[in-house]
């Protein structure tokens, strides 16, 4: 697959993520606002595949637009990101989703050799 095609696929995935995450956030807001029941929010760390700084920034932006997660901090030296989740019970699922949807394309575009 050429790089341009990968970038195009990434764009489509991104647009899909924007719509889905927007709708899900709206659902969470409505549920919280109406019932007062609050999901347990929290912070987790996630290791990401070795990549350039530009790639990590792009991945962070994409994560900010996936359902329920926001990037809080990126640590290039440790290869880690701090994520804030609206519902911490779904942490493993969210990380698995990020790794399945976004990471392969970004590694193909910006990946570096492992140190």
């Amino acid at each position: 697959m050429s790089k341009a095609f990968t970038a195009f696929v990434l764009l489509l995935i991104f647009l899909k993520a924007v719509v889905i995450s927007g709708l899900q956030t709206i659902r969470i807001i409505v549920v919280t606002g109406l019932t007062g029941r609050r999901p347990q929010a929290g912070i987790v760390r996630m290791r990401f595949a070795p990549m350039t700084e530009n790639g990590a920034t792009l991945l962070g932006c994409l994560i900010s637009l996936t359902p329920g997660t926001t990037t809080v901090d990126i640590d290039m030296e440790r290869g880690e990101m701090l994520l804030h989740l609206l519902d911490v019970a779904g942490a493993e699922e969210a990380v698995a989703g990020i790794r399945a949807d976004f990471e392969p394309s970004i590694v193909r575009l910006f990946g570096t050799e492992e140190r």
Binding site: V44, R45, M46, R47, F48, A49, P50, L83, A91, E92, A94, V95, A96, R99, E103, P104, V107, G111, T112, E113, E114
Partner: peptide, 10 residues
């Protein structure tokens, strides 16, 4: 979350 290493590492 999600283990020590990402499976997508090159």
């Amino acid at each position: 979350a999600g283990g020590e290493r990402s499976p997508n590492a090159r």
